[in-house]
Write a protein that binds this DNA or RNA. Structure first.
Length: 493
DNA sequence: AGTGCAGTTGACTTT
DNA sequence: TAAAGTCAACTGCAC
């Protein structure tokens, strides 16, 4: 049976291997592979030039891969619905194929407009999952098992020998200027594309995975010792499935620690999939609006000028690399949310732009988790001085990124204000005092009436079944408040 | 050689 | 993927 043109819409899945929408579309008929550069997307406050640069390199790599199989990748710029409608009018479209995307609120709204357009035009839109994230999830029960099932599916090989469509101009990739992106120098950024992603994967599994556990916490080791695959997974140069399956060919603590992180990747994205407003709204209603934006504090934090050396070094390294290890991300967020008491939405947008591997679901879940607003996790306030001593004991990292501290002797490097006699600038906040105040504020809210009732509901909806069982204390107290029989009894007493 | 004591370590709790 | 506090057990040392 002959079908009409199958439009495969590439989003953050910039590869030919393990691309089920592409493979399924090819089984139906001639394929038009399309990437839509959306200027409005790139003007969103969580997007940046460094992300576009990585995406653009990945697209160039994909263009080459398509050229090798005989059909150019088609690039168009503009609003997605406009571009799709033009394609429909000019070429006729029988079906639209893509991966499911759990993006930000903007891409969610855009997908709804595309869905409405497809419905109106009678064009079926086949969206297939590429991660362990489940659409329209009813319960978290059995989630981990489903994740394993999906990740265990056979890898779809790259197609070969496509029949080229004639008379369609391939189109050009716009530059930063054309997208009006703000200058965003990032000298040590990883480069995009599947070729480099595979290189990183092979090198990680062959040489670096053994030392993985030892390297992840220290900013001195992490840039080389971590997998460094996150950006390639975010932009889809590599599929999660192939990364997981390849890594399971190996054994050891490093491999199991790494693959459990792939599992957590999907666990966190699932939260945003289930509840899109968590991008800007605190999970727990009692946590909403508790912090305030202070411009001077925000600027000092964002520019790596807080006066706390380890915090500043991390922020400056992040700006220059477009990446930093997990623990240091958590510390930067913790410092902003607790010590500086800044709203996580504002600081989260800044971090989002810094991350080449920005993945909305992970990012916003983590921002909230490191700000204590989820209510289902215990609050974790990082002490940047202790973190510095633990993970940068000789101060090499601080010296690398804070040249202004050149003449400070090693013993004072983590807290140069302790160097008596020198007119050393004080940090913008006292770490110990501000941490204690933040802790008191959070626990005051957590003690307030009705807090646990919301927290239990959040745990029910978003908590991991595997490890996130409510604490004994909470379980006990929630039984008291949710079981009407016992509640009556306790009220009587 | 046993006792007292300051200091350390580790498990556990609290915030 | 926190940090600080508590407490008991332990250690090294002086006497």
């Amino acid at each position: 049976m002959v079908h009409g043109l199958q439009l495969v819409w590439f989003k953050r899945d910039l590869r030919l291997v393990d691309h089920q929408p592409l493979a399924r579309a090819l089984a139906r008929g001639p394929v038009l592979p399309l990437y839509i550069v959306e200027p409005e997307l790139w003007s969103q406050p969580d997007c940046s030039a460094r992300q576009w640069a990585f995406c653009r390199e990945s697209l160039q790599d994909l263009q080459e891969a398509f050229a090798d199989v005989g059909q150019p990748l088609i690039i168009r710029s503009g609003d997605a619905v406009d571009v799709l409608e033009r394609a429909r009018r000019q070429l006729g479209i029988s079906a639209l194929w893509s991966h499911e995307e759990t993006g930000n609120a903007w891409t969610f709204a855009r997908d709804r407009r595309v869905a409405a357009w497809a419905r109106e035009r009678g064009i079926p839109w086949h969206e297939l999952p590429q991660f362990g994230v489940v659409r329209r999830l009813q319960t978290r029960r059995g989630w981990a098992r489903r994740w394993e099932e999906r990740m265990g599916e056979a890898i779809t090989p790259a197609p070969t020998g496509l029949t080229p469509l004639s008379g369609i101009a391939p189109g050009d990739l716009p530059t930063n200027d054309a997208l009006a992106l703000k200058a965003d120098p990032c000298p040590y950024r990883q480069r995009g594309g599947r070729r480099l992603g595979l290189q990183e994967l092979n090198d990680f599994l062959a040489h670096r995975v053994q030392g993985y556990c030892r390297s992840i916490s220290s900013p001195n080791l992490a840039f080389k010792g971590c997998s460094r695959l996150s950006a390639y997974i975010t932009w889809g140069c590599l599929s999660m499935r192939e990364v997981l399956q390849r890594s399971r060919e190996f054994q050891g603590r490093g491999v199991s620690s790494f693959s459990s992180r792939l599992h957590w990747h999907c666990h966190f994205i699932q939260k945003l999939e289930d509840q899109p407003p968590i991008e800007w709204e605190d999970f727990h209603p009692f946590m909403r609006g508790i912090r305030s934006l202070d411009d001077a504090r925000f600027a000092a934090w964002a520019e790596g000028q807080t006066g706390v050396p380890f915090v500043d070094a991390c922020m400056r390294a992040l700006r220059a690399h477009g990446w930093i290890n997990f623990r240091m991300r958590a510390m930067l967020m913790s410092f902003a949310s607790y010590n500086l008491w800044l709203p996580w939405r504002d600081t989260g947008l800044h971090l989002a732009r810094q991350f080449v591997d920005y993945e909305p679901g992970i990012h916003w879940s983590q921002c909230q988790m490191q700000s204590g607003s989820t209510s289902i996790n215990t609050i974790r306030i990082y002490n940047p001085i202790k973190q510095g001593h633990d993970h940068d004991p000789d101060g090499a990292f601080i010296r690398r990124w804070c040249p202004e501290l050149e003449d400070v002797p090693a013993v004072h490097l983590h807290e140069p204000w302790s160097l008596l006699g020198a007119p050393r600038s004080m940090p913008i906040v006292d770490c110990a005092i501000s941490a204690r105040e933040a802790k008191e504020r959070i626990f005051e809210i957590r003690r307030s009436a009705g807090f646990d009732r919301h927290a239990d509901a959040i745990q029910q909806r978003h908590g991991s079944r595997r490890s996130g069982l409510p604490s004994t204390r909470r379980r006990r107290s929630s039984r008291l408040t949710t079981d009407p029989g016992i509640e009556q009894l306790t009220l009587d007493l």
